[in-house]
Each structure stands twice: as structure tokens, then as C-alpha cells.
């Protein structure tokens, strides 16, 4: 009987050891808590690039899609013969330099979806503070291109500063983390413009077709239902748009003040 017990014990321990050893032999990756990056007007390009690499590999979550070949374009390696992102970013949009293109892509990704890919990228400027977004731009420029992001771009993007000029480095900066769109304005049209709703939705006949047309949304939803939908885009999916479920960023509501959310919902509810 003891021999049987020992054999059973041996099988159990042996199986556990194999599983534990295999798990300890593969690459070990720990999910770290995002570190706060100390960047400011005096940061050098090298500091920005180094910080951007951390954002790219860390909180930005960029590596989850970029570089895999199926979800999103390669950024650090060649993409269809055009080279890495730093080498091709200045040629992507006519009249837009590399810096502007990259920043706007982070700010309004739905506007710059590369042919053959799905519009799945979240609004990065809503996920990270402006200095980290600029650091990310610097890092991407360094991949085969010239880094022209400077500490001055961060200074321009700081709260209270004027929005960066489009040619000098992208538009807006969005609401940022809780700062409110359009400087906290409760003008619904200003909120819609700043939040980039028309990148995906048509409103008053103008806008994209990724999301449902909101021109007459008031005839389908009241203000409370619109607020719910903005706060939790996954709460229900409009018929015909099932394939785009999950595309709408979930954090719009957290980027607005309650008064802005009310103003936006009331405005859309009036569009009958």
C-alpha cells in the first residue's frame, strides 16, 4: 500500500514540477505599474525618445498590435517596403510633416486608418498625458527619421497653453485626463468638434460612417439613453454596427465634466 501511495505522490509531484519548470523556462514578463515620467520644457530630444520608448512598451500598449503584422502596421520595422515609421511618416499625408502626422494619429486615430486595417486604435492622447504623447511621437520619429520634437512642444501642450498649431505638431491635445474638452466649454458643438465625434459619426449630415448616423439620434434615444451610451458604449450596440462594437472609446464620459456630458446629451437628444 505504501508503494502505491508513493507512486501516486510521485506522479502528482512530478506533474506539478514539470508544469512549474516549463513556466519558469519561458520569457518572464511582469506587468508593471506605469511610472510617472518627469518631462518638461527643458527635456532634450534624447530624453523624450527614451521616455517615448517606455510609453511605447508600457502604458501605451502599442506592442500589443503594432509589429504583429495582422492587427496594425509595423512601426519599428519595414511596412510594405516603405521603411519604419520614422522614414515614412512625413509622406503619409500631403502637407503634413512627420510630427504633425504622428501626433494627430495619436489624437484622432480613426482619421488615419491605414488601408487594410480595422479602426481599432484607441485615442492615445486620452490615455496618456500630453508630455507622454509627445515623447511617443519623438520615439516614433527616431525609428528611421529625424527627431524634431522638443521640450517646447510639451510646454505648448501644458494646461492653459494654446493648442499646438497643426503644422507644428498636431491638433488639440483633446480633453486630456479629465480636463474637459474645449477648455471646459458647455457648447455642444465645440465638444463634438474637440472630441472628434464626427470622425466616426455623421452629425447634421457631416462625418464618418464607422458609427451610427447621429443626425436624427434624438428620435431614437432620449438624453438619458445618450448619456448612458456615451458613458458605456458597450451597453448596447446599434443594429448594423455589430462589427464595430468596442471601437468607440469608453472613456469619453470621464474626459468631460458632468455639465459637458449633460449639454452634449441634451443637444443630441434634440436632433430629431
Amino acid at each position: 500500500m505504501w508503494a502505491t501511495n508513493l507512486k501516486v505522490f510521485g506522479v502528482v509531484i512530478g506533474t506539478l514540477l514539470v508544469y512549474t519548470l516549463v513556466c519558469n523556462k519561458i520569457p518572464q514578463m511582469q506587468s508593471e505599474v506605469p511610472v510617472k515620467l518627469a518631462l518638461g520644457p527643458n527635456s532634450t530630444s534624447d530624453e523624450l525618445v527614451a521616455a517615448g520608448e517606455k510609453v511605447f512598451n508600457g502604458i501605451g500598449g502599442c506592442t500589443a498590435c503594432h509589429g504583429l503584422g495582422t492587427r496594425a502596421p509595423n512601426l519599428l520595422t519595414d511596412e510594405k517596403g516603405a521603411g519604419p515609421i520614422g522614414a515614412r511618416c512625413g509622406k503619409r499625408e500631403a502637407g503634413k510633416d512627420c510630427k504633425a502626422y504622428l501626433y494627430e494619429s495619436l489624437d484622432e486615430p480613426a482619421k488615419f486608418v491605414v488601408s487594410g486595417y480595422q479602426p481599432i486604435m484607441p485615442k492615445i492622447t486620452a490615455m496618456v498625458p500630453p508630455e507622454q504623447a509627445w515623447a511617443l511621437v519623438a520615439f516614433l520619429e527616431s525609428q528611421g527619421g529625424t527627431v524634431d520634437v522638443t521640450g517646447a512642444d510639451i510646454a505648448k501642450a501644458a494646461p492653459g497653453a494654446a493648442a499646438p498649431a497643426a503644422t507644428g505638431g498636431g491638433g488639440g491635445g483633446g480633453g486630456g485626463a479629465g480636463g474637459g474638452f474645449a477648455g471646459g466649454s458647455t457648447d455642444p458643438k465645440a465638444i463634438i468638434k474637440e472630441a472628434g465625434c464626427t470622425n466616426c459619426h455623421k452629425i447634421a449630415g457631416n462625418g464618418g460612417a464607422i458609427g451610427p448616423d447621429l443626425t436624427h439620434v434624438g428620435s431614437r434615444r432620449d438624453a438619458a439613453a445618450i448619456k448612458k451610451k456615451v458613458s458605456d458604449p458597450a451597453s448596447d450596440v446599434t443594429k448594423g454596427f455589430e462589427n464595430f462594437a468596442g471601437v468607440m472609446p469608453k472613456n469619453f464620459a470621464t474626459m468631460m465634466s458632468p455639465a459637458q456630458l449633460d449639454a452634449l446629451a441634451n443637444y443630441l437628444a434634440s436632433q430629431k
Binding site: V12, L16, C23, Q28, Q30
Partner: peptide, 24 residues
């Protein structure tokens, strides 16, 4: 938010040891 010193999610190697201990 988890603000403890254990906030980071451990790698699979460490997790496998804890899992094996639990199973045992």
C-alpha cells in the same frame, strides 16, 4: 487602484509556483 507594493502583476514563473503550491 492597487497602490500596494504588490500592485504589479507577477510573471508566469512566479505565478506557476503559487499555483503549484495551491494545487498541492
Amino acid at each position: 487602484e492597487d497602490t500596494s507594493k504588490y500592485a504589479a502583476t507577477p510573471a508566469l514563473g512566479y505565478a506557476s509556483i503559487v499555483i503549484s503550491v495551491c494545487v498541492l
